[in-house]
């Protein structure tokens, strides 16, 4: 039993390391080589856990080999457009000037239901309003609408939209994130002052506090229960 426990720990940390080295992508955004490596690594590594008669090295060695191959293929495809194209890592234009490119759809085995579903997810129902739709290597679709169909922007209407920036978390579940305070050029004294203004006694009472560079603050206090 102890061996199963230790083997499981070793395999878990090995797969975690492999995924970390492979990069911070979500499972649905994996490229073909990453998907193959991820599926095979998880399957092969499980064998020595299921069968105690199989040495652990039979799981570790293929996992390391797959990981190395994946990292090397990613590096080579960065440099070689030809190999990228060969591995299917190139985007395909599936709608051009409001017309579906059926040849590309067939080539990518992408059916009309999948296409319309992806378009709906992005709030587009009228294919004729699309100038270009690109099927990305990770299976998602990027859409470029005709300029006449694009939503208007504050700049087009000459409206001052202010100068806000991306809000950063300053207090996360009662913990002050000092690095983000530094990023905004503020200190704990400033934070305490802002909390006092909102009748909050301590940062520990805050569930989430964010601020952008214009100091627009969002505060969510912890539930009292």
């Amino acid at each position: 039993m102890a061996i199963i426990f230790l083997r499981t720990l070793i395999v878990f940390f090995l797969i975690m390391l492999a995924m970390r080295i492979m990069g911070k992508r979500q499972l649905g955004e994996l490229e073909p080589s990453e998907l193959v490596a991820a599926v095979l690594i998880s399957d092969i590594s499980a064998n020595p856990l299921e069968d105690m008669g199989i040495p652990l090295i039979y799981g570790i060695l293929p996992a390391l080999t797959l990981l190395s191959c994946e990292v090397l293929i990613s590096a080579i495809t960065l440099k070689s457009i030809r190999l990228r194209s060969l591995l299917g890592d190139v985007p395909s234009i599936v709608i051009s000037h409001g017309k579906i490119n059926q040849k590309e759809m067939r080539k990518n085995r992408f059916n009309i239901d999948e296409l319309t579903s992806e378009l709906r997810k992005q709030g587009v129902t009228d294919i004729s309003s699309i100038q270009t739709a690109v099927l990305e290597p990770d299976g998602s679709i990027s859409i470029l609408l005709y300029p006449s169909e694009c939503p208007v922007t504050p700049a087009q209407l000459n409206i001052d939209s202010g100068n806000s920036s991306y809000p950063v978390i300053l207090i996360n579940d009662g913990h002050i994130i000092d690095g983000n305070l530094k990023l905004l050029g503020i200190d704990r004294a400033w934070l305490d002052k802002e909390l006092k203004k909102r009748n909050i006694e301590s940062p520990e009472d805050v569930f989430l506090l964010t601020s952008d560079s214009s100091f627009n603050i969002y505060v969510d206090e912890k539930d009292k229960t």
Binding site: I21, L61, L64, T65, L67, S68, V71, A75
Partner: peptide, 18 residues
Amino acid sequence: KKELFTAFLLIGIFAACL
């Protein structure tokens, strides 16, 4: 560095197998 490490790892694994 990562690519070099994995290339050496791959060569190392093959050498160890031989």
